[in-house]
Structures are given as structure tokens and as C-alpha cells.
Amino acid sequence: MPLTITNLNKQYNSQKIALSNYSLTINKGVLGLLGPNGAGKSTLMKIIATISKPSGGNLLLDGVDIVQNPNTIRKVLGYLPQDFGVYPNLNAYEFLTYIAAMKGLGGKALRKRIELLLEGVNLTADAKRPIGTYSGGMKQRIGIAQALLNDPKVLIFDEPTVGLDPEERMRFRQLIADLAQDCIVILSSHIVSDIETIADEVAIMQDGKLITHGPQYEIIQQAEGKIFEVLLDYAALNDFKQQYKVIDTARQADQIKVRYIATQPHVAASSISVNATLEDAYLFLTQSNK
């Protein structure tokens, strides 16, 4: 069930172009979407989730045009938006039953399914409490549970780990890996390490365009030989920042270790080339496309 995006455009007005000639084919597995704010990640996900119409281009799920036939994907879609809400007067069980109705689910097994999902996201003990009393992390887990209600074939997670504690994040990653065995998972996150751990493929976006797309190692390869580390005096740091794109700094005894992007290393003898990470590659690619 491939999802094929061809020359997708989204223009809000003459000034604001959210997506420009975006083409990509997404297959089973996890696709990580990376990009700075305003790159068009959420717009792309909204269009795939059928809640926003593109200005042009095609979007096919298994050969069916989902812009013209949105209900085709809606039957197999699990969507966790970035800033979703809940009905505070309903409890978790009632809310999931409501969302299940939206997804067209019913039958006697639905109750059991909801109970197991609530158990899976560790909300069984709180299932009878109004969701209005939940913490941010608990609401996020309700969001994850609702996305899984209909055994989706296309899962869209927009910033899914916001509000989760480190252990929940780790378990969420495992869950995604499990789900990705037989469905398409599209995941956007500002936390590059989340993408690095989960994604089979990565798509980097900027200004509504797809900069690059491919398996992680191919993306990282593009930054190999461009990432360096150097030890500097504190006083020299500001001047250094004027010349190079600094990725990270780490304080040492009386100096500072600086990780930076460059085509040629800094003249300092301590400057050494280091292995690139996905975060380095992301910063290198978005920097060089400015």
C-alpha cells in the first residue's frame, strides 16, 4: 500500500507557499520528517490526513486519489495531530468510544479493544476520570491510543513525544517500530534523536521543499567530512561563531570543545574531523540550502 505524492503544492496566499512541487513515495516502515519551523511538515501531514486540500499535485494511496476520495484513507488512518484536544467532560473510555464511532468502529469487541488499548498506554486506572483532569502526558497517551483504535495502515504522528517522560518516549519508540512492520508510519519531530532511533527513512524539508530523502545512512553520508571538533579558549568562541556554523559546545576545564560544520577545518591544530550524526547532517543540509 504505497503512498505516492507527486508535485504537491499548497499555497495559502500569494505570499505564503507552504509546499512547493513536493514529490515522494512512502512505503511500509517509518518515515521521519525533519525540518525547521515553517518548513511545511504539518501542512504535508494535514494534507495526507485529508483535513487540508492541496493547491495542486497528486496524492495516491495504493493508486487511489485521496484528494478526490478522502474516505479511502480515512478508513485506514491513524492521526495524532500536534496540538489536539479532548472533551474534558468525557472520561477516557467514553472519549475513545466516541472516536471509534468517528472511525466507523463498532461491535461487541470494541469495548475489549478500548480496554486493551487503555491498558497498553497505562490509563486503565484513570479511565473513569474526566479527561479534563489529566496531565499533559496522559492526554498525549490518550491521543496515541485513539490513533491505534482502527488498526491503521497509515499512521501520522505530528510531534508525538511532546509531554512524554524519557521512559514513555522509549516505549513509544518500541511501539512505533512494532507498528511499522505492516503499515506506513509518518513521524515528525523536532527531537532528532527520536527520528534517529525510529525512522527507516528520513525526509528533510525546508521552505516547503523536499531537500533530501532516503535511508538514514545515505543522509548522514552527505555530511561526512564536513563535521569537525575543535578546542578553543572561551574568548575566541564569539569570533569563531562568526565564521563557522556551530552545532554544539561542551565546556571543558579551561577551554571549550566546539562541534562545527565546515568544508575545510579550522586552522587550529586541535581541529579534527568526526563522524557525522543525523543531527549534524540535518543542520548541514538545511544550512547549505539557505
Binding site: 461491535g107 486493551l116 497505562n122 497517551r141 491505534l148 517522560d165 521512559e167 516505549r171
Partner: peptide
């Protein structure tokens, strides 16, 4: 409860879907 045991979801145990 503390959230330490979260996401222990086993999809294989979920009952089959019925559409309505």
C-alpha cells in the same frame, strides 16, 4: 499510577475490528 509501565501494547492481543 506512575507512568513507568506505559506503552506495553501488544497488538496481537487486540480483538478483531468490526466496522459500523
Amino acid at each position: 499510577k506512575p507512568v513507568s509501565a506505559s506503552m506495553g501494547l501488544n497488538r496481537a492481543t487486540l480483538p478483531p475490528l468490526t466496522f459500523n
